[in-house]
Simulated assay, not measured.
Amino acid sequence: MLVEERLAKIQEIVEKKKNVTIEELVDQLNVSKDTVRRDLIKLEKKGVLKRTYGGAISGKKEALIMGYEERSKIYSTPKKKIAKAAEPLILEFSSVIFDSSTTVEAVIPLLASKSLTAITNSLTHAVELAKHGNKDIKVVGGKLHQIQLFLYGSDTVLELSQYRVDYTLLGVFAITGSGLYIHTEEEGLVKRAMVNCAKKVIAVADSTKMDTTGFFKVCALEDIDVLITDVEPSPDFQRDLQEHGVDLIIAG
C-alpha cells in the first residue's frame, strides 16, 4: 500500500470510529507501530486528527446534538442578541418561513407588532406565533418528531415546495466555508426546501456553530443571503462569506 493510500485509509478509519488505537491500525493496515505513529504525526499536522496516548481521535469538529428542551435553555443571551439583530430585517406584511431552530424561535416575540404570513414546521413556534392576533399562520404537514417537536418527511418537503416567500429564517446547526450542515438527512431536506422557496434567506447562528460540521449538507454558502451571529468569525471564514455574497451581521 502506497503512503498516500495508507494515510487516506487511516483518515477514513478515524472519521468513522472517532477514536482508534495504534494496535487497531496496525492490524487493519498490516504495518508496524512505528509506521502508524509516523502516519499519525503527518495527519495531525494536516488537522485531520489529534494524537492521543496510544492512538488518535478525529480532528473534525462535530456540532453538538441536543434535544429541544436543552436547546431552548442553552446560550439564551447570544440568541437574544441575534434575534434583536434579525427583527429589523423582517418587513411588515411579508411572508416568512420560520424553521424549527430555537434561535429562530427567539425572533418571534420581537415580531409581535408586525402583521405577517407565517409558515412553520415547528409546533412550539406555531404556538408562539399564535399569541399575536396579527399573524396568518400555516403549519406544514408531515411526520412529528416527538422530541424536537417539528414536522418532517416527504410530505413536508413537497408542501414547502409550493410556496414562494419573502424570507426564510433559518437556524444553523453547523456552518463552514463549504456550506451549512445538519445531523440528519430528514431535517436537512426540510431546511433545504425552506431555502429554495425564499427570496431572501436569513441564517442565524451563535458562535458555537461556526467551523463545525454535520452529517448532511443543507445548502452551499452562496444559497444564504445574510448570516447573523454573536461573535466575529475568523478572518478566513469572513473571506468565505464575502466571496459567496453573504452579508455578515455581528449582533451587539
Rank of each mutant, 00 (worst) to 15 (best):
L7G: 09
L149G: 02
E4A: 06
E92V: 05
A8P: 03
Y181E: 01
Q28W: 11
E70G: 06
L221D: 10
E69D: 14
A251N: 01
M194E: 12
S72Y: 04
E243F: 06
E44K: 12
E62Q: 14
K131I: 01
P78G: 00
D223M: 00
L49R: 06
Y167G: 02
D223V: 01
A106Q: 10
V36M: 09
A85I: 04
G54E: 08
T176E: 09
Y167P: 05
A86E: 06
D225K: 07
E44D: 04
Q162C: 09
V14Q: 05
K131E: 12
K143M: 05
V218A: 02
L110E: 14
L160M: 13
Q146S: 12
I22K: 14
K143Y: 14
D206F: 05
I175E: 02
L91A: 14
K217T: 03
D225C: 02
K191P: 08
S101G: 15
G252H: 08
Q11K: 15
V31C: 13
F173K: 13
L111T: 01
L149R: 15
G179D: 03
I90C: 05
T117Y: 13
D99V: 00
I65Q: 09
M194K: 00
E70C: 01
T156W: 05
P88G: 10
R38V: 03
K200T: 10
R239I: 13
V172I: 15
